[in-house]
Design a protein around this nucleic acid. Structure first.
Length: 521
RNA sequence: GCCCCUCUAGCUCAAUGGCAGAGCAGCGGACUUUUAAUCCGUUGGUUCAGGGUUCGAAACCCUGGGGGGGCACCA
């Protein structure tokens, strides 16, 4: 970094105006003052950006080891700690500072008599937000506050830009999402939410490794975006001069690996859907999918319950979560450790409408029922699709506590295996919590002849104008021809699980950098 | 894409048609056990942008922009 601050506008009016800029307190003047401090350090031969600092323990460990000290204790234990200056309190010939690292906070106790005039002046010159490394001894104040009595202190990095309000933090949602770094610095709630998210992901990996699943990585760039119904992002490869799609699901590649004999695989990966943005949808989001040879959907239901309940306990210490009602009418506390309800989609529609439905019914009957409930119906839709629409419009929003909805019609489940007791339904489930879909799993269709027929139905629907429907994936069919063993598969939307367990009601709160329009600079 | 709300100092917020303000941060000063330290003094504004109405606009109107919420979309 050079010392001429070419990002600052040159005031028109010469040296007097420059001095004016420096003595003001707008953002530019504030930055200029802090940059001047850096120049002064360099002039005195010090490096304001040293390369490293060796700390002896984290602030969490410091508190764990010394948190029980009596008030007014002076120890001779020397420690080296590092962190960011969050608060400064001057008290004559003393300075108290609150320093924070990733795991904790500690007070720095600075006495002019201990550190000498020069260092004392330098410490008084620190700004909120500066990173510092400290050597000192462990003590407690008269009031009992655990502190490090500073012997030596060095600046590790300067905060040239002032921190947000030390008490109110950042509340402007736009700024919080765009400048997530600032949000994380000042808002404990944001730090907590992301700790929960990342603990959930670690918990999933732990459970899956424990059960013998191998974590794999499959392509993000797809020649055909398959495995789900969604509009894809389109991109282009220059050398191959070809159109590529960002993946909308992990499914088809992972099942190829089961064909290859890997038996139990999972991937936690980003997928992309070129659709609307809302409190429940971000264009890129994280999906966990797993596939298990020799299993069917009933095992997938079991592991779904285990994964999510364990994640809640691992991330928050409790299996109790607060579930937001989809109509905004409040929250309900639910203990995930209790067994989750299971209900067939057709039975839920029956409950909600008072009319028994089944995909074997003539489509006219279901159209009439849909019309009764004000559910618009596309003329191309068959009985199965209309039942799904009826479910979404009459029953879905009532599913507050975790509910496995099972037995989806074949028409809307092109990759799921037909129910062993009912040829119109599939061995499939979706998990709903708070009226939102969190997971989807099934007994995987492994008959290549039937899969081809289902793909051809998808292709026909797409050709008829339904852009989100699928197409025939010849390579996937070739894989099935080598033999896919009986397989259970599962997909879980990690962002929504994070929302549930962290107790937040917007997906942007659990995505570090949510998709936003570009900022004008 | 449509509807509603919102945008004021670096941050958090006032000012409802009549002199743009406060707290925090900053700057100067006092203070050797503070805890958002306190106390005294003090700097800082393209009120998102542009246009209009008005003697007078942060406020009212129009257009545009960012964000939020809802609808639509959405395995």
């Amino acid at each position: 970094m050079s010392s001429d601050h070419d990002d600052l506008p040159l005031p028109a009016g010469g040296d007097a105006a420059t001095d004016d800029t420096i003595t003001g307190s707008g953002l530019l003047a504030e930055k200029a003052k802090r940059l001047q401090k850096l120049d002064a350090m360099r002039d005195s031969g010090a490096n304001p950006y040293p390369y490293r600092f060796d700390r002896s323990l984290t602030l969490h460990d410091l508190r764990a080891r010394f948190g029980d000290l009596e008030p007014g204790t002076e120890t001779s234990t020397e420690v080296a700690v590092a962190g960011r200056v969050m608060l400064l309190r001057e008290q004559g010939k003393l300075v108290f500072a609150t320093m924070r690292d990733r795991d904790g906070e500690v007070q720095l106790f600075v006495s002019k008599a201990v550190v000498g005039d020069d260092l004392f002046a330098a410490i008084r010159d620190l700004d909120l937000g500066d990173w510092v490394g400290v050597h000192g001894t462990v003590m407690t104040t008269r009031k009992g506050e655990l502190s490090v009595k500073v012997q030596r202190l060095e600046l590790l990095s300067k905060a040239v830009r002032p921190m947000p309000d030390k008490w109110h933090g950042l509340t402007d949602t736009d700024t919080r999402f765009r400048q997530r770094y600032a949000d994380l610095i000042v808002n404990e709630e944001a730090r907590r939410t992301f700790r929960v998210r990342h603990a959930i992901i670690a918990s999933f990996r732990h459970t899956l490794h424990e059960r013998g699943y191998i974590e794999v990585e499959t392509p993000v760039l797809h020649v055909e975006a398959g495995g789900a119904h969604a509009r894809p992002f389109i991109t282009h490869h220059n050398t191959l001069d070809m159109q590529l799609f960002l993946r909308i699901a992990l499914e088809l590649h992972l099942k190829r690996l089961i064909v290859g004999g890997m038996e139990r695989v999972f991937e936690i990966g980003r997928i992309f859907r070129n659709e609307g943005i809302s409190t429940r949808h971000n264009p890129e989001f994280t999906m966990m999918e797993l596939y298990q040879a020799f299993a069917d959907y009933s095992e997938m239901i079991e592991i779904t319950e285990t994964l999510i309940t364990r994640a809640a306990v691992d991330a928050t210490g409790s299996s109790v979560v607060q579930i937001f009602h989809p109509d905004g009418s409040g929250q309900t506390a639910v203990d995930l450790a209790q067994p989750w309800r299971r209900a067939r989609m057709i039975d839920l529609v029956h409950e909600a409408t008072g009319v028994a439905v089944h995909p074997s019914q003539p489509v006219e009957e279901l159209r009439a029922l849909a019309a009764q409930h004000g559910v618009p119906v596309n003329p191309r839709w068959g009985s199965g699709k209309i039942i799904e629409e009826l479910f979404e419009n009459t029953a879905e929003h009532t599913l507050i506590a975790p509910t496995f909805v099972t037995g989806h019609p074949v028409e809307i489940s092109p990759l799921a295996r037909v129910d062993r007791h009912d040829p119109f339904l599939t061995e499939r489930f979706e998990l709903f919590v708070g009226g939102r879909e969190l997971a989807n799993g099934y007994s995987e269709l492994n008959d290549p002849v039937e899969q081809r027929a289902r793909f051809e139905d998808e292709q026909a629907a797409k050709d008829a104008g339904d852009a989100e429907r699928g197409s025939v994936d010849e390579d996937y069919l070739r894989a099935l021809e080598f033999g896919l063993p009986p397989t259970g598969g599962l997909g879980i939307g990690m962002d929504r699980v994070a929302m549930l367990i962290a107790g937040v009601n917007s997906i942007k709160e659990v995505i570090l950098f949510p998709t936003l329009r570009p900022e004008a600079f």
